[in-house]
């Protein structure tokens, strides 16, 4: 990794550090609230999802889109980096800035379920739900990398936010969740595993395609 790429990553993380800290703080409060209910999706759970979705939107809009709209990219692209390196630095920094709080809060959700009256059988449901938030982040980042049109961002965010509701309904309809959700142990049946791994893999593919498309564009600025 070149010095310039490393500095670009550190710079982005430095600019986003308070969002990361705030999200982890807010998410931990949400995890604590989750422990107060025996319901799989309670006020704490909704707050957890909102916290992660807000982080997602701020990371992409603040760290990628605004930078380009305000022509800061012109300044950054004078650094000795190629298009590919610039895009890679942007994706890595953004993925760390989102991924770290997401990972910490995912562990907090697991802990909240294990330590509360929420049946452990809902662990696969929550894992898949957190996987969907990751997928949503990948899609929004891919869109943010490739367009500065407000319409595309607003559309992606609106569809993403609404989809969370439909995805929760879908999860409650998954046979293994229906069968084992309220049980005392987590059952990782093939249906929920395929769904979870599939959504996360699809997210990674969308992000890679988005990053490659951006890096290959003839007119970078």
């Amino acid at each position: 990794m070149s010095t310039a790429v490393r500095h670009l990553i550190v710079k982005d993380l430095s600019l986003m550090r308070w969002w990361m800290v705030g999200t982890i703080g807010g998410g931990l409060v949400a995890a604590w609230l989750m422990t107060l209910s025996a319901q799989p999706i309670s006020a704490g759970g909704v707050l957890m999802l909102c916290t992660l979705i807000i982080l997602n939107i701020f990371m992409v809009m603040g760290g990628v889109v605004t930078e380009r709209k305000e022509h800061v990219t012109l300044f950054l692209f004078t650094f000795p980096v190629s298009r590919r390196q610039y895009v890679a630095a942007k994706v890595v920094a953004n993925a760390i800035a989102f991924g770290l709080p997401w990972l910490v809060l995912s562990l907090a959700v697991v802990a909240a379920i294990r330590l509360s009256a929420i049946p452990d059988g809902y662990l696969p449901l929550w894992t898949s739900l957190l996987g969907f938030v990751f997928f949503y982040y990948c899609v929004l980042l891919a869109v943010g990398l490739n367009t500065e049109a407000n319409g595309w961002h607003a559309t992606t965010i609106t569809i993403g936010n609404i989809s969370v509701n439909f995805f929760i309904m879908l999860l409650f309809g998954v046979p293994s969740v229906q069968r084992f959700g309220s049980g005392p142990t987590a059952v990782w049946a093939p249906d929920i595993l395929i769904l979870t791994v599939g959504e996360m893999a699809l997210g990674v593919i969308v992000l890679v395609v988005g990053a490659v498309t951006r890096a290959r564009r003839a007119d970078f600025i």
Binding site: S2, A4, L74, T78, F79, P80, V81, S82, R83, Q85
Partner: peptide, 10 residues
Amino acid sequence: EAAVKRDVGY
């Protein structure tokens, strides 16, 4: 571009 931009200011 990466190598060139070491010696070019814009």
